[in-house]
Design a protein around this nucleic acid. Structure first.
Lengths: 186, 186
DNA sequence: GCTAGATATCTAGCGATGCTAACCTAGGCT
DNA sequence: AGCCTAGGTTAGCATCGCTAGATATCTAGC
């Protein structure tokens, strides 16, 4: 049993290696390039090892990456808001949100666009998601106006995707944030 | 040469058959189920026939389906707006937009989420997209405030996806539309 | 009416994918 | 010593998108 701690740590390390590799490959070559063979190569083992760590296969790996993404996004928006309030807080959270999506497009894609969502509603991923959602709700002042929060989140989400797809004018990003802050800042 | 008209028509008909089959399969079983073999089955031919009609393969088929989607979406929003103005127009366009996405989730997915966008910026798909975009711009009154239009579109797009993913409270849809109309109806 | 060429369609198969069953091979336990 | 389990590999299955080459069918000229 004395060794089980060390073994558990090695297992956890390799789990993280797999996740890091998946994220790195996705960020450079897209999720289509995240194949089991390529991941196995990246960690120096063969494919079945992946399934030992993630029985759910590629789906579970993507899901786990996405989960970490929600935690990071929540932290980023919270940090950006700080003690700001009103329109300035909305602008800060919007800027942080859009920056996050722009900086890690493939991570953001995993969080929202990949067919991972199926089981999201039931399990712990929902907790991380709610946390990120609450970070948005906090800046809107009125504690229980979930509708406004949903609309703000929608706008940020849509804007992130459309910016990423090249369907927003890149030069006018600050204008959009200002527009958003003006319309949602109290 | 006299037959070439009839032949051309038959080719066009089968092209449409393929598109219809792709859309139907996607709508019932998702885009992952839209395989070349299944499409070939659906039209009563074998796989190579698909490539005779769509040299670009599955990608081109999805792209063409998406293109039709843009046209339909633009028509739906325009019809919903009618002669309304201000907040009522925004509410109408928002309702129509969300209805469209909810009624044809896989079509909407093809339009925005599948890796089709790559070549969108350069070719004619952009025209359909601009048309849909302009339908949104029209309801915002100020002719050249593209920033507000971008933000509204972002909100609608994000809301559609999040509703589809089950991340918005379904019962509060009309609240969200009202919220949107209130904030953008100026 | 018959043959030659074009046109339409199919058979068969390639490489790559996600995933898994079966085997091997070390190390600790009795 | 001898077994047993954990950890790893090899090899392979079914399916995917896609394509080359053979085959059938129809058209056109004599």
């Amino acid at each position: 049993m004395a060794e089980s701690g060390a073994r558990a740590r090695r297992v956890a390390e390799r789990r993280q290696q797999i996740l890091d590799a998946a994220r790195a490959v996705a960020e450079t070559d897209g999720w289509a390039a995240v194949t089991s063979r390529r991941l196995a190569d990246a960690i120096g083992y063969t494919q079945p090892v992946l399934y030992a760590h993630f029985p759910g296969g590629k789906t579970e790996i993507m899901r786990t990456v996405a989960l970490a993404g929600f935690t990071e996004l929540a932290a980023a928006t919270r940090a950006a808001v700080g003690r700001k309030t009103g329109a300035r807080a909305v602008a800060a959270v919007a800027g942080a949100y859009l920056d996050f999506a722009a900086a890690h497009p493939s991570l953001y894609e995993a969080m929202f666009q990949l067919p991972i969502d199926a089981r999201f509603a039931q399990d712990d991923a929902e907790a991380e998601l709610r946390s990120a959602f609450n970070a948005l709700a906090a800046v809107l002042g009125d504690g229980d106006d979930e509708t406004a929060t949903e609309v703000l989140w929608s706008a940020l989400h849509g804007m992130s995707l459309l910016e990423c797809a090249g369907r927003m004018r890149p030069a006018h990003r600050t204008d959009r944030v200002a527009e958003l802050a003006g319309r949602f800042g109290d």
